[in-house]
């Protein structure tokens, strides 16, 4: 039987955290090409320092909202980025309210927010676009 000592577990967990962060960074870079650059050798978008910083700050914010899993983190960070682009008059308070809701798991909050965004298309095209970018970021983490 393999027995891991706590310091060994810590190293593994650290590795997993870093791996998750890179996945999120890639997802954000793919969903927000304006924030990334193309690596000629790799032929794909790679996260730049700006993205890394955004993700790092996003992960930290998410932690306080109960959002931990990589897809949720990607969706959360994408939500934050996408909302910066909507017109000022767009009703977004309800999103903040949901994120701030204390007794609901982060994944659930995000699911409810994403579901409402997906249904807002007819009345509010800006939010519909937000929904698409969030969904795209979530999907990129799973790729």
């Amino acid at each position: 039987m393999l027995v891991l000592r706590p310091e060994q577990l810590a190293v593994i967990e650290q590795h997993m955290v870093q791996s998750r962060q890179r996945r999120v960074e890639r997802a954000i870079a793919a969903s927000f090409p304006e924030l990334s650059s193309v690596d000629p050798s790799a032929g794909q978008r790679v996260p730049g320092e700006q993205v890394k910083g955004i993700v790092e700050r996003g992960v930290q914010s998410a932690a306080g909202l109960g959002i931990e899993e990589a897809p949720d983190l990607a969706a959360f960070i994408a939500l934050g980025l996408a909302l910066r682009t909507v017109p000022p008059e767009t009703p977004t308070d309800w999103i903040k309210s949901w994120l701030a809701r204390p007794d609901t798991p982060g994944a659930t909050k995000l699911a409810i927010i994403e579901a409402q965004l997906a249904q807002s298309g007819v009345e509010n095209p800006a939010l519909s676009l937000v929904a698409k970018r969030v969904a795209h970021a979530r999907q990129q983490v799973l790729v």
Binding site: P91, W94, P105, A111, A115, E123
Partner: peptide, 15 residues
Amino acid sequence: GTLAVVLVRSDTGAP
């Protein structure tokens, strides 16, 4: 799993 039921106003978006 979790089942969330959400009800909002269609005219204003208010819950």
